[in-house]
C-alpha cells in the first residue's frame, strides 16, 4: 500500500514539475493564462524553481522506494510519462478554450 502511494506521489510530483515548466513557455502561458502578456521574469523563475523542487522530491521518493539503480531508472522514465501527461493536458485545455471562443464568436454573429 505504502509502495503504491509512493509510486503515485512520484508520478504526481513529476506531473506538477513538468506543468510548472510548461507554464514558463510563452505559448502555453498565452494560451491558458493571459493572452496579451507573457509571463513575468519573476514568475518564470519561481515556476522553474518549483518545477525543480518537485522533480528533486520525486527523485528522492523514487530512490527511497526502489534503491539507487531502480529508483533512478524509474524517475527517468516516469519523468517522460509526466511530460506526456502535461502535453496531453495542455492540448485538451487549449482546444477546449479555443472551442469556447469560437462558439462565442459565432453567437455574437460575426
Amino acid at each position: 500500500m505504502r509502495d503504491a502511494l509512493t509510486l503515485l506521489a512520484v508520478f504526481a510530483l513529476l506531473y506538477l514539475g513538468c506543468a510548472a515548466l510548461a507554464m514558463t513557455l510563452d505559448r502555453h502561458w498565452r494560451d491558458l493564462v493571459d493572452r496579451r502578456n507573457g509571463p513575468l521574469r519573476r514568475t518564470v523563475q519561481r515556476l522553474r524553481l518549483s518545477g525543480a523542487v518537485c522533480a528533486a522530491a520525486a527523485l528522492g521518493l523514487a530512490i527511497q522506494r526502489d534503491g539507487g539503480a531502480f529508483g533512478l531508472l524509474l524517475w527517468c522514465l516516469a519523468l517522460t510519462v509526466g511530460a506526456f501527461a502535461v502535453s496531453a493536458t495542455l492540448t485538451w485545455r487549449t482546444a477546449q478554450l479555443r472551442g469556447v471562443q469560437l462558439r462565442g464568436a459565432q453567437l455574437r454573429g460575426d
Binding site: A22, L25, R27, A83, L90, T91, T94, A95
Partner: peptide
C-alpha cells in the same frame, strides 16, 4: 526544441 517542448496541436 524548447519552445515546442510540450506542444501538440491536435487542431
Amino acid at each position: 526544441i524548447f519552445k515546442d517542448f510540450f506542444t501538440f496541436r491536435s487542431w
